[in-house]
Simulated scan of single mutants.
Amino acid sequence: MVYAGVGKSDWEINLGLEKGIACFNVESIAELEVIEELAVAAGKTANVAFRINPNIGAHTHANITTGLAENKFGIAMQDMEKVIERADAMKNINVVGLHFHIGSQILDMGDFEALCNRINELQAKLENQNIHVQSINVGGGLGVSYDSPDRQPIPDFKDYFRTYTTHLRLREGQQLHFELGRSIVAQCGSLISRVLYVKQGTHKQFAILDAGMTDLIRPALYQALHKIQNLTSEEPAETYDVVGPICESSDVFAKAIDLNKCHRGDLIAIRSAGAYGEIMASSYNCRKLPKGYITEDL
Rank of each mutant, 00 (worst) to 15 (best):
Q174C: 06
Q174E: 03
Q174M: 14
Q174F: 03
H177G: 03
H177D: 09
H177A: 04
H177F: 03
H177M: 01
F178R: 11
F178L: 14
F178K: 13
E179P: 08
L180R: 01
R182T: 12
S183E: 09
V185W: 05
V185N: 14
A186P: 03
A186L: 02
A186T: 05
Q187K: 13
C188I: 01
C188H: 09
G189I: 13
G189A: 10
G189N: 14
S190H: 04
L191Q: 04
I192H: 07
I192C: 04
S193A: 14
V198G: 00
K199Q: 08
Q200G: 00
G201I: 01
T202Y: 00
H203F: 07
K204Q: 14
K204F: 12
F206K: 13
I208H: 11
I208L: 15
L209Y: 13
L209S: 12
D210V: 04
D210I: 07
D210P: 04
M213G: 15
M213A: 14
T214C: 01
D215C: 06
D215P: 03
D215M: 02
L216A: 11
I217V: 12
I217R: 08
I217C: 11
P219C: 12
P219T: 05
A220T: 08
A220Y: 11
Y222E: 11
Y222H: 13
Q223M: 03
A224Q: 08
A224E: 08
H226V: 08
H226K: 10
K227C: 11
K227Y: 07
K227T: 04
K227G: 07
Q229D: 06
E234G: 07
E235D: 15
E235V: 02
A237L: 09
T239H: 05
Y240A: 10
Y240I: 02
D241N: 15
P245K: 05
P245N: 11
C247H: 12
S249Q: 13
S249M: 13
S249N: 11
S250H: 04
I257P: 09
D258E: 08
D258H: 07
L259D: 04
L259T: 01
N260P: 05
K261C: 00
K261I: 01
C262N: 00
C262D: 00
H263I: 00
R264A: 07
D266M: 08
L267P: 05
I268F: 04
I268Q: 01
A269I: 09
A269T: 08
I270K: 10
I270H: 07
I270N: 12
R271D: 03
S272T: 14
S272M: 13
A273R: 01
G274A: 09
A275D: 14
A275Q: 06
Y276R: 13
M280E: 14
S282K: 07
S283F: 03
N285Q: 07
C286S: 15
R287Q: 10
K288G: 10
L289A: 13
P290A: 02
P290G: 08
